[in-house]
C-alpha cells in the first residue's frame, strides 16, 4: 500500500480511464502542470500514466491521478502546499531547460546562417 492511500485524501472520480482523469484535472484545476510518468509525490508514490500526465492545483489542494491495475484510474486530491511548491519549482526548471535548449538551437541556426557580404554581392 502506498503512502497516498494512508493519507487524508478526497476522491473526485473513480474507476475511469486515464484520459477521462486527465480531462477532469485539466478542466477542474486553477493551475495545470504536466509531469513525466514516474514523477514522485509524497513519500513513495510514483505517478503511473500515459504522457502527458496532468497534475492540478486548486487552492491548497493538489489533484492527481492514481492508477490501480484492477480498478482503473482515480482522481485524488490532497492538501499539500509542499508538493504544490515542488510542482511549481519543477515547472520552472523545465521552462529553464527548454529556454536553454531553444537558445542553443537559435545560436546554432545563426551560426549556420552566417554569410559574408562578399557572398551577398557576388550575385
Amino acid at each position: 500500500m502506498s503512502c497516498v492511500e494512508q493519507m487524508k485524501y478526497k476522491l473526485y472520480l473513480e474507476r475511469i480511464s486515464f484520459k477521462e482523469a486527465r480531462d477532469y484535472i485539466e478542466k477542474s484545476s486553477e493551475e495545470v502542470y504536466y509531469v513525466d510518468p514516474g514523477y514522485k509525490i509524497f513519500k513513495d508514490y510514483y505517478i503511473i500514466g500515459v504522457p502527458p500526465v496532468a497534475m492540478g492545483v486548486r487552492g491548497k489542494e493538489m489533484l492527481f491521478t492514481f492508477v490501480k491495475p484492477c480498478h482503473g484510474t482515480f482522481v485524488m486530491g490532497i492538501d499539500s502546499e509542499e508538493e504544490i511548491a515542488r510542482l511549481r519549482e519543477n515547472e520552472k526548471e523545465k521552462m529553464k531547460r527548454l529556454l536553454k535548449k531553444g537558445a542553443m538551437k537559435d545560436e546554432k541556426r545563426s551560426q549556420q546562417l552566417q554569410i559574408s557580404f562578399n557572398k551577398i554581392y557576388e550575385n
Binding site: D36, P37, I48, G49, V50
Partner: peptide, 12 residues
C-alpha cells in the same frame, strides 16, 4: 485501460 497506463509508464 489500466494495463495500458502501466505499459505507457514503462515505455517512459
Amino acid at each position: 485501460d489500466a494495463g495500458l497506463t502501466y505499459a505507457a509508464t514503462m515505455s517512459a
